[in-house]
Amino acid sequence: MLLLPFLIDQPPTERVIARQGKVSFFSYTSVEHIKAENNQVFSIIDLDSGEIAVSMLMNAFVFEKALMREHFNESYVESDIYPKATFKGKIVDFDPNMEEVQTRIVKGVFKMHGATKELEIKTKIEKTGNDFVITGTFEAMVKDYNIKIPPLLRGNIAKTISIDFNFKYEPYES
């Protein structure tokens, strides 16, 4: 009995969750501009430790052209085999109590299409009441994620894809 408090040693850690996070990516070449949006991205932050996780379904990306979405899932990211992309990392020097805007580096591991890549992303964190908004941009090289582009379409798809994200967090009750 004495040892029970040891098992449930700490009060439940405070977490915030985003259920409708937005991730969009852009590929700009002289031939074609491609844009896609996913508005159903999930993310969670552990406020004490600054740990952050992101999870998104690849087939939820919406493109301007319906066929692009099909080709994206079928021929490029193979979402039958790799349905999700995830990120797990830590916000460096995160202060959950700071009321003004803080700019922080998020370090972590991004997994997509069976590839794993370490990322450092500069983010802007805004706190309003108990809610947080995190926004940022980073770039990803297509070749880092084992995505094959047929030679005839090399001109249509950029080598570097720019990715924007915008997550609104609210307190999480498990």
Binding site: I17, A53, T86, K88, Y172
Partner: peptide, 23 residues
């Protein structure tokens, strides 16, 4: 477990949207 489970929480939170065979 507490350190491990942030992605697991997201797995539970994500609604089980039906997955259809594409193409």
């Amino acid at each position: 477990l507490k350190a491990q489970d942030l992605l697991d929480i997201l797995d539970q939170e994500q609604p089980d949207s039906p997955l259809y065979a594409n193409a």
